[in-house]
Amino acid sequence: MGFYLLSYLCIFVFILATAYRIYRQITLPIHVRWELYPVQHETAARAAYGGSYLEEVNWWEKTHKRSLFNELRYMLPEILFIRGLWKENRSLWRISFPFHFGLYLMIATSGLLVVHALVILGSDYPAAPGGTIKSLLDGLIVVTGWTGLVLGNIGSLGLLSKRWTEPELRNYSSFSDYFNILFIFLFFVSALAAAVFTDPLLVGAKAYAFGLLTGGLPLNGYAPGQSIAGGVAIVSASLLAAYIPLTHMSHMFMKYFLYHKVKWDDAQNRRGGRIEAAIMENLELKPTWRANHVDADGRKSWRDIASSAPKEK
């Protein structure tokens, strides 16, 4: 039961930390525009060379045509295959891609494990269900699981050795940078060991997922921690789930904000609109910068200061 309790706790931390990160982002004041082209929700013709709606005469009189399709067409390979890195830093991509894709496949496998558990719960447990859906799931879990584990091990070992051996990475790396990769490697290597030596069909993983959903009900007599490797895999996976959103590795999902709230945020301020209202609020904030020319006293607002002249020396 200790394994399950740890997993519950870690999932709780994951949800809390992720929610906090996202909450913090969405409650920040609106910032000035700082977009960077190409902006991928532009029409395909413009996105191809990095153009914007500002290329049109009297752009403010026109509705800004945006293309969700174009945005997705860019984002999908970017997220799945890390296309940016492929283009700009190929040698790093060769290990970063297996690393990230391995992680994605682990997430996919986790999802499949949950579906698998739900299918069992939907049938007349404890009798083992059969049927095509179950066989399909069994097959998929083996494929995604194994591929992910192999890629993940290659990727994390590769990242570790690259960071350690190349001066331009090593000179900027701290203990935590190695620790993070080692941590992930620990999961990948223990899970792979468990699969290779005791559980090639990932029966244990399926049973653990079932246990997680049912408060610890055993599936086919399973109890977590039967093999050391399997136990380490469960513990490290749980801790990782809690740890990742606490670190810069949260870029996995925070990239949404980096792109959509900054790099691609080209939304115009229209008179009487939502953005204008948010700016008006910001202009009432009272800065306390101390340089003479700012002339802030904690009572003057940004609006007051912006409409004044700098204090003469």
């Binding site: 830093n89 790093l92 990475l169 810069h248 870029h251 990239k255 980096l258």
Partner: peptide, 8 residues
Amino acid sequence: EHCAKCQT
């Protein structure tokens, strides 16, 4: 908060 120090 999100630099991975990859030097790209």
